[in-house]
Simulated assay, not measured.
Amino acid sequence: MSESPNARASSAPDLSDLSMDDTAEEFRMNVNRRTRKRGHNDEFTHAFEDFTKKIMTTLNEWKMDFGQDISQINNTLKNLSESTQEMKAEVTSIRNEFSELKKTVRRLESRQTEVEGDITSLKKSMQHHSDEHDDVAKKLEIQNKEIKVLYQLKKELEEVKVQNRKIRTDINASQQRDRLLNIEIVGIPERDNENLNEIILKIGKSTEIDIRNDDVLQVNRVTAKLKVQGRPRNIVAKLRTRQLKDNVISQARKRRLSTKDLDIQGSIIPVYINEHLTLYNKNLLKMAKEIANLKEYQYIWTKNCRIHVRKAVTIPAIFISDEEDLRKII
């Protein structure tokens, strides 16, 4: 009994359990074997072979596509692995940087605490300085007021000094005018029951100047402001005229009188006859002598109770009336 085409077709092998190459080869051999056995229906055989070729072609294409897909997947996995390593390295770097950043943040926080402390201290210091500045400003304001007062007082003091100088000069000049006719005799020892008028007459005789009793208006001993132990008091005599006074002083200086010339017993002592200066003029004369000697002035003298200094004969004399005039001795 012959087989039906459907029965033969249903006897085709199962390709699902075979590999791709083995399945195609066995399928081809089985087809050829069965085709030879059957020996009929060549058209079907050719059609089936064409179908088989198409299937094989399709399977090969699938295989190639699958291989390419696998290769792409492998490349993608490789690239993904490299990217993963790079990401790991980058994550590690980020972690390290984050760790350093945390350390930096901690240092900054610590520094911020220090800075805040410094700022607080600076604020306190600034407040302290501000308070001190306010105190200084107040003190300066007070000092400025005091300085203005001092300037005013200084100005008034200068005016008072000028006035005092004028008053002192006027008083001294008035006192000195009262002494214009006086001579002051230094160096005559004191004796009990001495006759001062007789001493004046002996001075006239020694200087060859005619002095009469009525030429001596007044004569007496005067006590010095600073009395020196053992030194006799000076004799002050008021004569009748200035001319007589000047002649006595001039001749006494030329003759260099002594106690021997006046018939005074005892040790020979120089006798000096000067103009009767006020205490102020005596001190002024003393200071003028000291400065003139220091500045090598050759002459210093008094005339009409006025003090004069001269550095040399060819240089004009300088008149000294008070301490301010001492500045002229240069």
Rank of each mutant, 00 (worst) to 15 (best):
G187S: 03
K205Y: 09
Q163F: 15
R231S: 05
I211Q: 04
I199K: 08
I203Y: 02
I188G: 01
N172I: 11
G230S: 08
G204F: 01
K225E: 13
V216M: 04
G204R: 00
R165C: 02
T207E: 04
D215P: 08
V160H: 14
A173W: 08
E184F: 00
G230P: 06
A173H: 11
E194A: 03
L217I: 15
L217N: 11
V216W: 03
R191F: 10
A237Y: 05
L239V: 08
E208S: 05
I203C: 02
V228E: 00
N213E: 15
N197H: 08
R179S: 10
V222G: 04
D210K: 14
V160T: 12
D210G: 08
L239T: 04
K166Q: 15
E208N: 05
N193Y: 04
R177K: 14
K225I: 11
S174A: 10
V228T: 04
E194H: 01
K166E: 15
T169D: 15
K238Y: 03
K202H: 07
N195W: 05
P189F: 12
V160E: 13
I200A: 02
R221S: 07
R233D: 15
V216A: 04
K225C: 07
D178Y: 11
R179H: 14
V219A: 02
E198N: 15
E194M: 04
V216K: 02
N220G: 12
K166W: 14
R191L: 09
L181Q: 07
R177C: 09
G187V: 06
P232E: 11
N193G: 04
R233C: 14
I185K: 02
D170H: 08
T207V: 10
G204E: 00
N234Y: 03
N195V: 07
R231K: 14
P232V: 14
I203W: 04
L180V: 10
N197V: 12
I171W: 03
I211V: 09
A237R: 07
I188N: 01
D210W: 06
R231Y: 12
V228W: 01
Q175S: 14
I235Y: 00
I188V: 12
L226T: 14
T223V: 11
E190P: 02
N220Y: 12
R212H: 12
K161M: 13
V162C: 11
K227W: 00
I171C: 07
Q163V: 13
Q163K: 15
I203Q: 02
D214W: 06
D178T: 12
E184K: 11
D192R: 04
R177V: 08
T169K: 13
V162R: 15
N197E: 11
R233S: 15
L239W: 03
K161F: 12
L181M: 05
Q229D: 13
P189Q: 08
D170V: 08
V236C: 01
K225N: 14
V186H: 05
Q218S: 13
N193R: 04
D178S: 14
R233Q: 15
V162G: 13
L239I: 08
R212G: 12
Q218W: 07
D214V: 10
N197T: 12
R221Q: 09
E194G: 00
S174Q: 07
K161W: 07
G204K: 00
N172Y: 06
T169F: 13
R168A: 11
N172T: 12
